[in-house]
Nucleic acid binder design. Structure first.
Lengths: 343, 343
DNA sequence: ATTTCCTCCCAAAGCGCTTTGGATATCCGT
DNA sequence: ACGGATATCCAAAGCGCTTTGGGAGGAAAT
């Protein structure tokens, strides 16, 4: 059924060399010949044998991923969504994955082994922290890599894809301030992750630009689960001066926060405003909340797909991709934000 | 640095053939020779080139997995945990993954493509439903596969790994009945998944053996999130005759249920007893609940690892594995269960 | 008219392994 | 002592692709 290069070449009355070159876009082949080859390939459904390509080129055609198994990361809902994007794109190009579950303390060893194994052409890195030691390590490893997120405090000379978390939460906070809110709380992700740090920074900037400050009692860091969102919100509401608005680092956190708010008998968008960051989890759409949520939106799945594209493109040397990308999150206003209540 | 077969053979003064055979356990090689070969392989750190093996044997040395991207599955916390087990084991044997995200309606096409691609030696299947059409399809595909869970209503002649959900919830329900509970509720997973069906069945059996029945109003099916657990429990508590005990299909559901119970001012283990199924999520330990949870326990990660082992073992033809395994969940009693309250 | 230079194509080597089809040597029974 | 097992090893082919090192033929340059 499946044809191979040899058969295809025979069929066309050409040599394997020429067919291979035509298929792989090398210049030394006549335009008309290339057209014929491509057409024949299409008609016969020719698919190059990856094992043979791997052997011949020395490339692995697969990308390695160290899957952190620290509590609260591997089982994170956000992880599955990101992975789906990555995998979706990889499959299109017939790329494989080497998933390497690893506890944080073993990560360095895992990375080295993976890079040395020859089983992967590129590595992927996520869950960035401030002064993350892994990027220096990866630079020394002489294997291409791509970072999801950015470190802080490191030089910026490494390829990454990140969203502009600072700007996102700056925008969100500014909107709340413009609506008259003065006491704004923050339910953030884990404090050691850079996206959390940057979101807080963006929020702080907006506040200070308007002469406001951030009350430490109105900041909570935690794993991004429903339950933690609930508890954080509850704590805020018990404060002698509860906030009139809250920023949430995830719609998952917001889910809990909303519950706490409802339970306290407050009305979202009136008594208290809420903006959450929306990773576009198919399971949890902000427009389906009982009071539709104002969000800063950036699709996690799309980020996964983009990372796969860049990684694969780099390996295949097809096209040029920017080394660094910073996506802007969209601020989408729905019903959960409203003017600050009058005292 | 890395030696290949040829070099290793030269080093030993043997032919590649002999070395290869010694390494792969073929009989026609002298015991002493084999010892020497194995030792040399160890000392030089010889690792066979997978691409070459793939080309020579036609095996892919990788296992395919269709990752369901239906809402509430891919982003499920349980998914990441299971995947970690699978990946952990695969990495040990230098096996790759081909993750294929696919919407349910495209699954059949995806499976066929995957099987035909030659990129995988075996397929893995999960999230089983009653009369699941996928198993008949896979049987027709002439590629080994392994099912996590079991279908219902299909003939049983396919390889699977499942836990005895019926027995688990039978045991759990029986314990509650022995403690004097008469009105027992169930917070279950999605109703179309077989584990949910079986758990309910087990519970029903225990009830009917003691002349009790299951009030339909005391059964809830939903995605296994905190939030759904909360809502389900709330609904039960609003009932004119609320239950005195509850079974939960996941500790994640239990998390929400506990919150609803606390909120109602009831004491767990006294006013209301609770047993949850514990998948051993590292993030959510039943012993860390404010009132430690009685559970039926079976590690999801271990199941993932076992499935990888069986799949890989089958491909490599190393050792024999049972075709079908049914794991027994352990019933672990903690403080969340107590005698039924006196009226 | 001869040389040089492209353009376009090909034969063959090689990637590192497995496997087929012997070869050689030893040992057996008769 | 001799044909036939048996045990142990090897040379070489082959998996399906990429890539090196030409080579033929025509256009351009001298």
């Amino acid at each position: 059924m499946a044809v191979n290069l040899k058969q295809l070449a025979e069929l066309l009355g050409l040599s394997q060399t020429t067919v291979s070159r035509a298929l792989n876009g090398y210049p030394e082949v006549n335009a008309e010949t290339r057209r014929r080859v491509l057409q024949a390939a299409r008609e016969t459904g020719y698919r190059p044998n990856r094992a043979a390509q791997r052997l011949a080129t020395g490339k692995a055609y697969s990308i390695g991923m160290v899957m952190p198994i620290a509590p609260g990361i591997d089982s994170d809902v956000h992880f599955g969504e990101f992975l789906a994007g990555l995998a979706e794109e990889a499959v299109k190009h017939d790329f494989h994955f080497v998933l390497n579950p690893s506890a944080p303390e073993d990560e360095e060893v895992t990375f080295r082994r993976l890079a040395a194994s020859g089983n992967v052409d590129a590595l992927f890195l996520a869950y960035m922290r401030a002064n993350d030691p892994r990027i220096a390590m990866l630079k020394s490893l002489s294997i291409p890599f791509l970072v999801h997120g950015r470190s802080i405090g490191e030089s910026r000379d490494y390829p990454f894809l990140d969203i502009d978390n600072t700007a996102a939460f700056y925008d969100a906070a500014r909107l709340l301030i413009q609506l008259g809110h003065q006491r704004i709380a923050l339910i953030n992700g884990p404090e050691y992750l850079t996206f959390s740090i940057r979101r807080q920074k963006g929020m702080l900037r907006a506040l200070s630009e308007h002469g406001l400050t951030l009350d430490e009692a109105l900041v909570q860091h935690s794993l991004m689960t429903d339950e933690h969102g609930y508890r954080s919100m509850q704590r805020f509401l018990q404060h002698s001066q509860p906030p009139t608005a809250v920023l949430c680092s995830s719609t998952v956190l917001a889910l809990g926060a909303v519950r706490a708010i409802n339970q306290a008998g407050l009305k979202i968008g009136e008594d208290i405003s809420l903006i959450a960051h929306d990773d576009v989890l198919p399971m949890l759409k902000p427009e389906n909340f009982s009071v539709p949520l104002t969000t800063t939106r950036s699709s996690l799945r799309a980020a996964g797909a983009r990372i796969a594209t860049r990684l694969i493109g780099g390996i295949l040397k097809r096209g040029e991709y920017p080394e660094q990308e910073l996506w802007r999150a969209e601020l989408i206003v729905r019903a959960s934000t409203g003017p600050a209540p009058q005292k």
